[in-house]
Amino acid sequence: MLVVGHIGKAHGIRGEVLVTVRTDEPERRFVPGAVFTTTSGTLTLEALRWHQGRIIAQFSGVPDRNAAEELRGTELQVDSSSLVAPTDPDEFHDHQLVGLRVVSLDGEELGSVARIDHAPSSDLLVLDKSGGGTALIPFVAAMVPTVDLAGGRVIVDLPPGLLDL
């Protein structure tokens, strides 16, 4: 499953919610009638409009503010098998990266990718370190020069001390 959106606070009194988009193709994912999987079932998008870079959405079966507030924090997911692979060789879906081994330029095993955090300035690889604990690696070309999907690894070039933070 691929997370494409995150429901925030209720908007107004008619059951609308703010949705933060987590996909590069919101115009394909967020259309009336789209069905999203959540941890508690499915949600069908009835209507939407854009407001300051986020979607104000109305879902079926959410008639008022109280019902909308219950959705706060819900992740909207789609089946990744239904997605078209990215055409840009430097673009990846989160599910393609999760689980890959993380290796330094000299071949040292550092751990594996636990998840991707989408921060405002850049995406972050969340590393489950081999020795225990986690670390955040900015997913930028300077620090992640190679993603080898076929080899099941991500090669990183990290500044000294980054994994100690």
Rank of each mutant, 00 (worst) to 15 (best):
T42Q: 13
Q77C: 14
V113F: 06
I56K: 02
L83K: 03
E91M: 13
Q52N: 15
L48H: 04
V140N: 00
A85F: 04
V144Y: 03
R54T: 15
R65G: 03
D123A: 12
I56M: 00
D88V: 03
P63L: 07
G111P: 01
G41K: 07
V35D: 07
H93K: 01
R72M: 15
T87A: 05
V103T: 05
P138G: 08
T87K: 12
N66M: 13
A85P: 02
L48D: 03
P86N: 10
G73D: 01
L76W: 13
D64W: 11
L124P: 02
D106C: 01
V35I: 12
M143C: 00
V126Q: 04
I137A: 07
R65L: 13
D117F: 13
Q96M: 10
V35H: 08
A68N: 12
Q96K: 07
A114V: 14
H95E: 13
R115P: 08
S122N: 11
F59V: 10
L48S: 09
R49C: 05
S104R: 02
E91Y: 12
S104M: 09
P89F: 06
P138T: 08
P63T: 02
R115L: 14
G61H: 07
G107Y: 02
G53N: 10
G131A: 14
H95C: 00
A135C: 11
H95T: 00
S80R: 15
H95L: 10
F92T: 06
S130A: 15
I116D: 07
D106T: 03
S122R: 09
R115G: 04
H51M: 06
V35T: 13
L127N: 09
V147N: 04
F92D: 01
